[in-house]
Design a protein around this nucleic acid. Structure first.
Length: 464
DNA sequence: GCATGATCATGC
DNA sequence: GCATGATCATGC
């Protein structure tokens, strides 16, 4: 018989009994062997088992697969989610916070206000435990128990963005593009893939294309920001908000457009004059510094850009409109790369190419050189994320890279002419900036790049 | 003119 | 000291 909870406080109080405790400490010793046996049989899906063990042993609730909130009577949805140790900040988010599966057939008939997502997740009880590699799930210790009301407990700007994210995802499914959904499409609320392997697919209502099963989730950077601010109190005094002085709610995209709009079609000197700023040195980051000034930051960061995993990229077109330079990613570690698998790309390794392509949003700030002048014009800004239709090609480049490294063929790493999408090039201080390879040799630091031509095509064809 | 290799500058 | 973003330099 399930224990009945009549209100949210009771659920919270019960959850709080787990602070600094692990399951092993509360499971009756007579049942421990049985549970250990159960865990051994699970291997792959241990996380689901972990949640059910918590429900049963902490809350006295029999596991079920109901799409109702976990504590129906009290209206509380329980979420257990891992923290990992962070050298400076104590803890950070290990993963996204995953909510329920997206039912492609039902969700197209919903509005945000009446969505099953909101119904189920309005009142959350977040249980953060400390994840440690190879540790038995019975020994994970809980660190924070936090009741979160989605509509009251999150700022107006954030919940507005989350609503717009939800609506974007649903609109895409309505267009028959569920198979093209990507976490990078949206800012805080993402549609993350959720399947044990790549072969599992689902039907979608507006198209015959099979689509990967996906769930709503808070993107990893968003939940991490939550952890830093609400749990750890690491409110960064060096963080600015683009909504600071604004008295209405707007999306991140609209707000950024608005901030840049007075400077569009102006040249670098005019912009600096308008800003009352002075940057004489024409260093490689000159334009990036101008962009920072426009955004009102120096070395500090913008909260929304961080939370939404947006990467700002300065793009400089030639006077002809031609783009010369490709876009670099962080340098990779040869050992890491060969140990990764393409499909198991999760937040565990945020530097992983696939993870970045599928979760990142880019803000391109496009400048253009001018014929017969050294002035540079700010042409436009655009938001972009890597489209899922090109993911197979990116995988091919990645796979070839992995093969080359495994076989020690470093001169044959994928070049620009080998792919229309991406290639591998050096990315170090200089040719002497090397790291160790699996062969025990030293190789110069390298990274993945998105081809200049590929990005040029994006800029020429995307008008937002 | 472009692909590829190489390096600079900044900020943490 | 190093990671990262951005661009430079060379040779075909």
């Amino acid at each position: 018989m399930d224990r009945i909870y009549t209100n949210k406080d009771e659920v919270l109080k019960q959850g709080q009994t787990m602070i600094d405790k692990s399951l092993r400490q509360i499971i009756p010793s007579a049942e421990l062997n049985t549970v250990e046996e159960l865990i051994r049989g699970y291997e792959q899906r241990r996380k689901g088992l972990f949640g059910r063990l918590i429900e049963w042993y902490v809350f006295g609730k029999k596991p079920d697969n109901s799409s109702q909130a976990d504590f129906n009577i009290a209206g509380v949805e329980l979420k257990t989610t891992p923290l990992k140790r962070h050298p400076q900040k104590k803890y950070s988010a290990k993963e996204r916070l995953v909510f329920s599966m997206i039912d492609y057939n039902d969700v197209v008939n919903e509005t945000w206000e009446q969505s099953s997502f909101l119904k189920k997740n309005k009142h959350l009880l977040l249980m953060f435990y400390l994840w440690i590699k190879n540790k038995n799930i019975l020994d994970y210790e809980f660190k924070y128990i936090y009741p979160l009301n989605l509509l009251d407990g999150i700022s107006d700007e954030d919940i507005y963005q989350i609503q717009k994210d939800w609506e974007f995802i649903v609109a895409k499914i309505k267009r028959g593009e569920a198979h093209l959904l990507s976490e990078g499409d949206t800012y805080y609320l993402g549609a993350c893939t959720k399947a044990a392997n790549n072969t599992i697919v689902r039907d979608q209502p507006m198209s015959n294309e099979p689509a990967k099963p996906r769930a709503f989730s808070f993107k990893q950077q968003y939940i991490n920001y939550f952890i830093q601010n609400k749990l750890l109190g690491n409110a960064d005094a060096n963080t600015n908000s683009i909504f600071k002085t604004l008295r209405r709610v707007e999306t991140i995209e609209d707000r950024i457009k608005e901030i840049f709009s007075p400077y569009i079609k102006k040249n670098d000197r005019q912009i600096l004059f308008m800003l009352g700023s002075n940057l004489q040195r024409k260093s490689k980051s000159y334009k990036r510094l101008i962009v920072n000034r426009i955004l009102g930051i120096n070395s500090n960061k913008i909260q929304e850009i961080e939370k939404a995993n947006v990467t700002i990229k300065v793009i400089t077109l030639e006077a002809t409109g031609n783009l010369k330079e490709s876009i670099s990613f962080p340098a990779f570690d040869y050992f890491d790369l060969v140990s990764q698998t393409w499909s198991a790309s999760r937040g565990d390794s945020m530097a992983d190419f696939h993870y970045q392509l599928e979760t990142k949003k880019f803000l391109f700030v496009v400048f253009q050189k001018q014929k017969g002048s050294d002035k540079i014009i700010l042409k436009r800004t655009l938001f972009w994320n890597f489209p899922m239709k090109d993911l197979d090609e990116a995988e091919r480049v990645w796979q070839k890279t992995v093969d080359c490294i495994n076989e020690g063929r470093y001169s044959e790493l994928p070049k620009m002419k080998d792919s229309s999408v991406a290639h591998v090039r050096p990315h170090g201080k200089n040719a002497k900036d090397t790291i160790e390879t699996p062969q025990g040799t030293q190789e110069m630091k390298r990274c993945f790049w998105l081809n200049a031509k590929y990005i040029q095509n994006v800029i020429d064809n995307q008008n937002n």
